[in-house]
């Protein structure tokens, strides 16, 4: 099978600043991958390139051997760092919007998750708290049967109990051939759920290894290693 994601010599330059510089990485199917790095290291730039919201200055990014475009958007379920949903819409309207938009959207699954999280689908988005809005968005994104999930800070704004629920949701719903790429600063919370971590530093990949390799070789958690590597 073709790798789900392939970046070769991926470079993005803003004026004179290299947000990403010659990044090479390949992700196979069936893994949960943490994209970790300090603020401004290039995580969101990489995520936007994968989703075709930015175009590379150099190099390329391929999803299932295709450049980002309408075909890859069918395969990729993306949670952006900021909401693009219309605040005036009701949750139920957004559900039908997603059903129209994506063939792989499972409205039933979304309904169950919203119920578990006690979110009233008749509510308008703007009446919901920041954390609840984030939950709604994550539910939408995880209710697709995608091949690649790209989640930009999925658990940053929600309380610890909801965080546990969300991680369980990810573990329950993700199918064995799908890959999840998620960026976060809350490493301790997600460490046990990850297969692999990518450390990104000044727009370059500085580490690409599995969680248990780090623990076996260094005798420390990913969180501890991160704090050492990126010590200010």
């Amino acid at each position: 099978m073709k790798p789900i994601l392939e970046c070769q010599g991926l470079t993005k330059k803003y004026n004179n600043f290299y947000a990403l510089s010659n990044l090479n990485v390949t992700l196979e199917r069936g893994q949960i991958v943490g994209l970790l790095g300090p603020n401004g290291s290039g995580k969101t730039t990489l995520i936007k390139l994968i989703n075709g919201l930015l175009t590379p200055t150099n190099g390329h990014v391929m999803i299932n051997s295709m450049a980002p475009g309408p075909e890859t958007k069918k395969l990729v379920s993306y949670l952006p760092e900021r909401s693009y949903l219309n605040d005036h819409m009701r949750v139920e309207e957004i559900l039908s919007y997603f059903s129209d938009f994506y063939d792989d959207f499972d409205a039933g699954r979304a309904g169950i998750m919203l119920k578990d999280l006690e979110i009233d689908t008749r509510s308008r988005l703007r009446t919901l708290s920041k954390g609840t809005k984030e939950k709604v968005q994550l539910v939408l994104v995880m209710s697709r049967d995608a091949e690649l999930y790209v989640l930009d800070e999925p658990i940053g704004g929600v309380d610890p109990a909801a965080r546990d629920y969300i991680l369980r949701t990810i573990l329950t719903n993700y199918n064995e051939n799908a890959t999840i790429l998620l960026s976060t600063h809350l490493i301790t919370d997600i460490e046990n759920v990850l297969d692999r971590v990518l450390f990104i530093q000044n727009g370059q990949l500085s580490l690409n290894t599995t969680v248990d390799e780090i623990r076996t070789n260094q005798g420390k958690s990913v969180d501890t290693l991160f704090r050492e590597v990126f010590k200010c």
């Binding site: 069936g30 991680l167 573990l171 046990n192 297969d195």
Partner: peptide
């Protein structure tokens, strides 16, 4: 799921 860990692990 019970352990809250990655299925591959």
């Amino acid at each position: 799921l019970d352990a809250s860990v990655n299925p591959n692990t």
